Simulated scan of single mutants.
Amino acid sequence: MSVLLTGATGFVGRRLAPVLVDRGLDVRAMTRHPDDYDGPGQAVHGDVGDPDTLTDALDGVEVAVYLVHSLDDDDFERKDAEAALAFGKAAAHAGVRQIVYLGGLGADDDDLSPHLRSRREVEGKLAEGGVPVTVLRAAIVVGAGGISWEITRQLVKNLPAMVVPRWVRTKTQPIAIDDVVRYLDGVVGNDDAIGKVLEIGGPEELTYLVMMQQAAEVMMGRRLPIVTVPLLSPSLSSRWISLVTDVDTTTAKNLIDSMATEVVVTDHTIRELVPFEPTSYMDAVRQALTESGETPKG
């Protein structure tokens, strides 16, 4: 089976590529710079922002994995929608039978943030060409190099104490990057998953406050003093994060806007399709630290 993997050099894609290759699949790693690609699979040129490059990349492909977003761009909603629409149409023209997309959790009737609203829109745009889309919706993904995890890690590491807004008491359901990859691998080419929206998460529903406290325990072996305040807007929060971490202000704001929305798993169908026991949050933190060359202390 031939699989086109977009975002092959990204946080998720670079971990998924070797898993798909080990399965014996014919993996095409789509990148704007194929000469620089040194991962598994065959590097092919393609850019979702340039539809003319997609025809050759998708030729003969049965399954396409779509791992693309533009959170670091102020105009990400428009760009992501246009890219998804073009990709879906190109996939249909090439005869692709399944698109797999990693989206975001959150109830459809919520007042979604621009980030989560864009993820929903991308789901629909990918499907407009007629190819069935398998959507995996996730919340915070914990792993070395992931933006959400890097914000948590660097805040905990760089600050002796924190003053945080009320949204830290919002519930989310973090998931280890290895578990995300396992679910993605499990639905690629899986007839029972084609055309379905599936929710994925770790075993615990946690607030962002508890996540930071548990991360501090694992990283430093102690709790972190945290005080919540009623007034700290997403704009101010993002500027504060960009000062304390190496995450740029635009990306931070787009993520923080989503943190007032509860994002937890309400449908457990994925556990029947791809059965395994998900990793706990603290174990996911330990794995992320180890991969980064840091030694967990708790």
Rank of each mutant, 00 (worst) to 15 (best):
V218H: 02
D74R: 14
V187C: 03
V197R: 10
L71Q: 08
Y183S: 02
A215Y: 10
R97G: 14
D36H: 13
V27C: 03
H69M: 09
A86F: 11
G7I: 04
P230G: 02
R119D: 01
R286N: 07
D73K: 09
D267I: 13
T170H: 05
L224H: 01
H45P: 03
T261L: 15
L116I: 15
L206H: 11
Q42Y: 12
M30Y: 09
G104F: 12
R137W: 05
V156H: 01
L126Y: 02
Y183T: 10
V142A: 09
A90T: 05
V264A: 09
P114M: 04
S70W: 06
P234F: 07
V168C: 07
Q287T: 14
G103T: 09
D47M: 06
P165M: 06
L105Q: 01
K253H: 12
P203H: 10
I226N: 01
T172N: 07
Q213F: 03
K125L: 14
R153V: 08
A288R: 03
M1I: 12
A91V: 06
V229D: 02
D179K: 00
N158R: 11
G221W: 07
R222M: 13
V100F: 13
P296S: 00
G186N: 03
L5A: 04
P51V: 11
A92P: 02
E205D: 15
A43R: 00
H45M: 11
D22P: 01
T261Y: 11
V197C: 06
R239T: 13
P160R: 07
T269K: 07
E128K: 05
I147E: 11
G130A: 06
R15D: 05
I194L: 08
D72R: 12
D72Q: 14
L102T: 02
D75K: 03
G103S: 15
H33D: 14
P225N: 04
V131N: 00
L209A: 14
F11R: 00
E262F: 11
L206G: 04
R119T: 02
A176C: 12
H115S: 13
S233Y: 13
S237E: 09
L184C: 10
I177W: 05
